[in-house]
Write a protein that binds this DNA or RNA. Structure first.
Length: 407
RNA sequence: CGGGGCGUGGCGCAGUCUGGUAGCGCACCUCGUUUGGGACGAGGGGGUCGGAGGUUCGAAUCCUCUCGCCCCGACCA
């Protein structure tokens, strides 16, 4: 899956990489669906940019500072508001350029005092960041709500129960900052919320993201949900049996921050009346590398990982029980070829070795489906198809298996 | 940054107290027997013991310095 290269720094090995890549695509797809456009800004940044927003000195030792050969101060980006705002500022001149939402998926570095939980909290990590630019607060609120809904859909698609919890929104105030927390046994802190928030099925809820999302968002935010430091004993008491307390991992954070950066970078457009409008901004993050850790944390059993189909490195694992046997090799290669032709990602175990090892390894890898082909099946004209999550097996023809996987 | 711990074949560890030239399990390679749920036998390869300096006839082991990593806390996607 991954291998540590230094404190809080990890290499992604092929199988883990595929899972991460799928997660990226999934997360990105949900951003595109609400109209965000993808771009990419560099990992290394000039310190001057951060001096302009007065964050260079404010950021502290978490920022990895670098000096280049000309003795210029640079840094490995812990986040990207400055770059994106500067880009927007250069390009947008008219109110007609608003609203605008941009996102990217990029590596960041935060020199955490104490990295831990492996990829869940590394120093170098992959993050999806979206930034919104609106003409006024009402517009910013619409953008915020779109992201709110997109986040619910994103996490639901990954089989995760992600609960939006009110977060500290700093000097801005209001309820325009939420952390999305998934529940997992090894979460880093204790969280509490109304049980309705956990039981909701949002993946299959139809939501018109162009309509008024406020009532929908309100239906969440009016229910109690709090991270460790925000908890309210009185409110929890009042909930009684509706209260759920569990460990949580923060995988996303959305917030509105007004004009802090648009002022610093003169992100100003001309309004319909010729007056200048300073863009209202918000930013919306999802820790993608952390998410992969969270998915595995939330979805495994004693035998190994159970990948959600949306982000599994491969959809199906093909096991040749008797490599070297003409019938088994032929049947496997035939099906493997057909799966590839159909565009189905398949992992083929053609190792020589004992059946038990292959079964155990495939369960450990945790692909959603397994197709087992052995001498019995070859002579009987069937393959065995197993669902990793339920353990359900069925003996069906190779054609039926193919049909089911391509459906 | 405070507190604790650990660096010995690819992985997990023993050996360190009480110095005598490195061992175990797994993995790997070869051959044979096995073969639908983590096989067995025989043989084999691989480590200047994190690094530097010191003490000593002799250092994985003792001393000094240094680097790295892990865990607990305060902090973060």
């Amino acid at each position: 899956m991954s291998r540590q290269s230094g404190g809080g720094i990890y290499a992604w090995l092929p199988r883990g990489f595929r899972g991460r890549k799928k997660s990226e695509q999934m997360v990105g797809g949900k951003q595109a669906a609400i109209g965000a456009r993808e771009l990419r800004v560099p990992t290394s940044q000039p310190a001057a940019l951060w001096r302009q927003s007065e964050r260079y000195d404010a950021y502290g030792p978490e920022m990895l500072r670098i000096t280049d050969r000309h003795d210029r101060d640079m840094l490995y980006g812990p986040t990207n508001e400055e770059q994106i705002t500067e880009i927007f500022s250069d390009a947008a001149k008219s109110y007609r350029d608003l609203p605008r939402m941009l996102y990217h998926i990029q590596w960041k570095f935060r020199d955490e005092v104490r990295p831990r939980f492996g990829v869940m909290r590394g120093r170098e990590f992959l993050m999806k960041d979206a930034y919104s630019f609106d003409a006024d607060f009402e517009g910013a609120k619409r953008s915020y709500n779109k992201q709110f809904v997109a986040y619910l859909k994103t996490f639901a698609r990954l089989g995760l129960t992600a609960i939006p919890m009110k977060a500290d929104s700093g000097p801005i105030g209001g309820d325009m900052s939420h952390e999305f927390v998934i529940l997992a046994e090894t979460g880093e802190s204790e969280v509490a919320c109304h049980k309705d928030l956990i039981e909701a099925d949002w993946e299959n809820t139809e939501i018109d993201t162009e309509g008024d999302l406020q009532p929908f968002v309100d239906s969440f935010t009016e229910k109690y949900a709090a991270t460790d430091e925000e908890r309210d004993p009185d409110a929890e008491m009042a909930l009684g049996d509706d209260l759920v307390v569990a460990r949580g991992i923060e995988v996303g954070h959305i917030f509105h921050f007004g004009t802090k950066y648009s002022k610093a970078f003169n992100a100003v457009v001309t309004g319909p009346d010729g007056a200048e409008i300073t863009a209202e901004m918000g930013s919306y993050g999802i820790g993608v590398s952390r998410l992969v850790g969270g998915i595995i944390e939330a979805s495994h059993d004693d035998n190994g990982i159970i990948w959600p189909e949306a982000v599994a490195p491969f959809k199906v694992g093909l096991i040749n029980l008797k490599t070297g046997d003409e019938g088994c090799d032929g049947a496997c290669e035939d099906l493997y070829g057909k799966l590839q032709d159909a565009g189905i990602d398949a992992l083929y175990d053609d190792r020589e070795g004992r059946a038990g090892v292959k079964f155990a390894d495939m369960d450990l890898i945790g692909l959603p489906w397994q197709v087992v082909i052995g001498p019995k099946g070859v002579s009987g004209g069937f393959v065995e198809m197993k669902n990793r999550a339920t353990g359900e097996r069925q003996e069906i023809s190779a054609e039926a298996a193919l049909a089911q996987l391509t459906a």
